[in-house]
Design a protein around this nucleic acid. Structure first.
Lengths: 214, 214
DNA sequence: TCTTGTTGGTGAGCGGCACTCTCCAAGTGC
DNA sequence: GCACTTGGAGAGTGCCGCTCACCAACAAGA
């Protein structure tokens, strides 16, 4: 299939596909001659993933490029490839070490990891971008005056652990290894809007139950 | 306190504060004379909330304005004010009705609401922006080929219901009514990054437990 | 009193991002 | 032969969240 058909099948304009090719989000097609390149089902699949990451997941193009580069990195084993891809996702800047709110937030997060028994996360903490995101978010809330501490977060952490177990069970039901890495990225990024919407819907439901609808 | 001090105490530049004043995110100070206005602790508080909504929550300025207008709307009762503020948050465009993926997604979401017994959410469904967001997100995943259906979402919905109960218990522990509306907005928006980070951290932990760290 | 600096207010400009438009020479298909 | 399409590349667009420059009115120090 050529560019025009790839565009028609994916619903993405040719101009945008050309942009993704330029940005390295999509591998070039197999060149037939100077004015023709051939794309296959893999390209269509990848293009749909790219679109979903950017549009549904709200991932910046530059971040998506890094994530996908890790997904494609044949030199890494499966586990590493997955880890590398997921670690490339959060792009929060390094929090200000001098800020006392950041120090307090880090202390609370570390305390939380202890109380819920996340030993691996605690080992990975200094390296993990996700850990950094959590510290940044907690610091922001504390600066606003909300008393976010380990005790407050613990029940949420327990619930999220169950969610993660559910995620991984689901993931392991997928067949191929290549698919699994891609599916893991999709799960981490694309399932988030679903989870967020379910969360807010649950808030609406619970709020309506407690206070009624007016 | 005057502009310069408000800026220093909040860590937001005077230019940005002026911008927020122009955009209606922040009420003007009490004018003392032609070149002086006085700001109080309420302004500082609101400014911090605005910052957090925009920076931590990633809420667009225009959306934040609407949300805050509802928070301030004295003509509404507390429940309505809260509901209106939260409903102003999601800004997804109306999904394409003709798209079969959207129709299928809506059917699955409605089926989900039935199986988990969210009756209020089902009543509110045609109006609720959150319901719309959920349908859009599910449709995107289905278009990518992921079989997201009511059965798959049900355990997640149950877990999110528990999260929502936790949210509301926490909220009811807050003292003043005015604070509660603001706290509810903060909880809905600002706690999301914390929840997301906890989710990903839990994924890392669980993944490391199952597959080891390499 | 004179000077120097600061105030709130406003229009215009900037940088980043995700495209999108325009053009091109090289080829395709009737 | 000739209209059309192809892949490629640079420049332009529109939006968004600021940020800058400038203004007249005033405050504060010498």
């Amino acid at each position: 299939m050529r560019l025009a058909e790839l565009s028609k099948r994916s619903g993405v304009s040719t101009a945008t596909i050309k942009y993704y090719l330029r940005e390295g989000l999509l591998a070039p097609g197999r060149r037939v001659n100077a004015t023709t390149a051939e794309y296959d089902a893999g390209h269509l699949r990848r293009l749909r993933l790219v679109r979903a990451l950017i549009q549904v997941g709200g991932v910046p193009v530059a971040t998506a490029r890094q994530v996908l580069a890790h997904v494609d990195d044949e030199s890494l084993g499966r586990t590493m490839r997955l880890g590398a891809a997921l670690w490339a996702l959060p792009q929060d800047p390094e929090p200000d070490q001098a800020d006392p709110a950041v120090a307090a937030a880090r202390a609370e997060v570390d305390r939380l990891l202890g109380t819920v028994g996340w030993e691996r996360a605690r080992e990975l903490a200094p390296l993990s971008p996700v850990h950094r995101s959590l510290v940044t978010a907690v610091a922001a809330l504390r600066r606003l005056g909300y008393p976010v501490d380990a005790e407050l977060m613990a029940p949420y952490a327990e619930l999220m652990q169950r969610v993660a177990r559910q995620d991984l069970d689901l993931l392991q039901s997928y067949a191929s290894e290549a698919e699994r890495v891609e599916a893991a990225v999709a799960a981490a990024v694309l399932f988030e809007p679903v989870l967020r919407a379910l969360h807010r819907l649950a808030q609406e439901e619970e709020s309506a139950r407690r206070f009624g609808i007016e």
